[in-house]
Design a protein around this nucleic acid. Structure first.
Length: 317
DNA sequence: GCCACCGGTGGC
DNA sequence: GCCACCGGTGGC
């Protein structure tokens, strides 16, 4: 029931680095490597290499990797997920493949490069993707051919947001998938031609103000979007414990049964609960003492500095 | 010292 | 619940 039947694009990632060759992200460990996977795109135009699908045979641990989101319409049957969680603690998944669903037959088609994928995604709503579209790189493909990939439990799928503008020429949009159990599924970063990494619209705007040359060359805020895909696997992302409520209802016991194991899988200690209260339920006042004082100074002012709606940032102007 | 990654909050 | 933002910091 979710938003599935609408074709858009998605990617999948997978944590198993054993995968292949080309992406080899880090094969060993360093999480930083995954970066390399994205690098490939970096190589400007080399369209020849691509596709990083993972090799199921190589598994050892099946850590699903997030892949580009696609529109999947088939109902989410993720029961098949072998739980990737517990084991391999920190293998960061990386995007393993980009796939887009045909608006006609609903089969998933792998997209050869990230750039091509971004190009398709940019106008997916106005220009739906069809198997025939893939003829650009697969001359004879049609809806009669079997799907390139399907949602089995071997990968982590995530649905991407449609119509995200392609990054400006020379810039790169990086999607970093976070580990399971994190508070967010992923982060988007833009890397300027200078190598500067920008992680929010605020930072982009500031950067452009400091480097007017980009603006003069046509770079605009509408070319940026920090929207992240949504994982199909429920509980991949840790849910936030009901805001303040928790402290207010300190006495409202948290029965273990009520708590989703997964959610608490993390080794994190949750000090609040313990510190918070011996036995008497304090009033609903956030105790400054126990609190790490993490308040963020709210300095950010007006939000309308840039006017661009990420969702519909297609300014075809 | 840097920075990629994670945590977590404010605001809707 | 989701999204945007950004502080903190472990690991290099």
């Amino acid at each position: 029931m979710t938003e599935n039947n609408f074709h858009d694009s998605s990617f999948l990632s997978q944590g198993d680095n054993t995968s292949q060759d080309f992406i080899d992200v880090s094969s060993s460990s360093s999480s930083s490597d995954d970066e390399s996977s994205e690098d490939e795109n970096n190589q400007s135009g080399d369209a020849s290499k691509q596709l990083v699908l993972y090799d199921p045979a190589a598994n050892g641990t099946l850590v699903p990797a997030p892949e580009p989101a696609t529109p999947f319409q088939q109902h989410p049957r993720r029961q098949g997920f072998p739980i990737s969680n517990q084991q391999s603690p920190r293998v960061l998944p990386s995007v393993g493949a980009f796939t887009v669903q045909c608006a006609n037959c609903f089969k998933w088609r792998l997209i050869p490069t990230k750039e091509k994928y971004e190009e398709i995604r940019e106008h997916i709503l106005e220009q739906p993707f069809y198997c025939e579209t893939a003829r650009e790189w697969r001359p004879d493909i049609s809806c009669d051919d079997p799907a390139d990939i399907s949602q089995d439990g071997s990968r982590l799928w995530a649905i991407d947001k449609p119509n995200i503008a392609q990054p400006p020429p020379g810039w790169q949009r990086l999607l970093r998938i976070r580990g399971e159990g994190s508070t967010k599924f992923a982060d988007v970063y833009y890397v300027a031609p200078s190598g500067k990494r920008l992680r929010s619209m605020v930072e982009v705007q500031k950067y452009l103000l400091e480097h007017p040359e980009y603006v003069s060359n046509g770079v605009t805020m509408s070319q940026f979007s920090f929207q992240i895909p949504k994982p199909l696997q429920e509980n991949y992302v840790r849910k936030r414990p009901a805001r303040l409520l928790a402290s207010c209802n300190g006495n409202e016991r948290l029965e273990p049964d009520l708590v989703r194991p997964l959610a608490w899988a993390g080794p994190d200690e949750s000090p609040d609960l313990q510190l918070g209260m011996p036995r008497l339920p304090p009033p609903c006042v956030p105790d400054p003492i126990n609190r790490p004082a993490k308040k963020r100074a709210k300095k950010s002012p007006p939000k309308e500095m840039y006017s661009s709606d990420p969702r519909a940032s297609i300014d075809s102007s």
